[in-house]
Design a protein around this nucleic acid. Structure first.
Lengths: 163, 163
DNA sequence: TTTTCAGTGGGCAACCTGACCAGTGATACG
DNA sequence: CGTATCACTGGTCAGGTTGCCCACTGAAAA
């Protein structure tokens, strides 16, 4: 967890990749105004650093036929955490699961084919012994989709001496 | 929002890309046992469909120096929604923002440099006129990181006649 | 002063891409 | 029952890109 400092060049690399992910190292080096070897080395380092985890395809659940998103807060019976995790892992509609502070709770992101279908998903999720209570919030709008660039830029400013 | 049906071949393409995002169309066609043109056409269609939104780099906030994640539920004063959105958009630590059913609320994902730093971020977020109340849950563990493959596979089974 | 490191600019063969094309089998349609 | 349409195959082609190598420079650390 140590020297993962990001400088401005790294920030520009990430921002560029976010905007046009399909460009290669050569094109990248041209846009950045550095040598190809430099771009290559930086990119390699960002990946082995773990700053860039990968380039997996971003799949839109809505386009797959799952336009409804919801967040469910779960209250778990003492000591049943592991079982609940295992159970939720088997439900494809559970896109994400976190354990949180608060009332020994979990928070999970769900998708469904429709509001009606959401009922089925919720039943699937909470129809499990270790779950005491669940409260669900249906997402209406998503004014800020998952983003990272502003944070990258701030990190680059904070750490980077130059580029 | 119509014919975005995914068949098994599409499912395999997405799964393959998720596992090894850097492979090209040629290698992909070899692994899938289809002609290159087919793989290319499928991939193009998945992208213009919007099923695959892109291949942006997945950046790990922890590696950037933001190891703390939290979810904040915000209660907004009537009619102030737009202002709050605009405000939250300017905060880099806000990674994601949703408006949800419930008490006319919003849910946002935050990151911070430390638990102490989270206080600063929360102050930044809620120190805004339109926000009436906020409750924050700090993420401890992430048993299921954001995933899509299980859903893709289910969608492929449901829709696809073959591959 | 010397070592180390990041970056530069260049060159090379091997490979991949995007763009074509003709041919085939299945399906839908008049 | 022909026939158009569509997805797929398997092939070619030029041009661009990758991964790898090298020698050289400048700055910072030892």
């Amino acid at each position: 967890m140590a020297g993962t400092g990001i400088d401005r060049l790294d920030g520009r690399i990430i921002a560029l990749l976010a905007r046009e992910p399909r460009i290669g190292v050569l094109e990248m080096s041209r846009r950045l105004g550095v040598a190809r070897g430099t771009a290559q080395a930086r990119l390699d380092r960002l990946q082995s650093n773990g700053v860039i985890r990968g380039f997996g395809p971003e799949v839109d659940p809505a386009a797959l036929g799952y336009p409804v998103t919801a967040f469910a807060t779960l209250q778990i019976r003492q000591g049943q955490g592991a079982d609940v995790r295992a159970h939720l892992t088997t439900v494809p509609e559970v896109l994400e699961l976190h354990t949180t502070t608060g009332t020994g709770d979990m928070l999970c992101r769900l998708v469904a084919r429709s509001n009606a279908d959401l009922q089925r998903v919720i039943d699937l999720v909470v129809g499990f012994d270790g779950i005491v209570r669940a409260s669900t919030a249906i997402v209406m709008e998503n004014p800020v989709p998952l983003r990272i660039i502003p944070l990258v830029e701030q990190a680059a400013e904070d750490t980077g001496r130059g580029d």
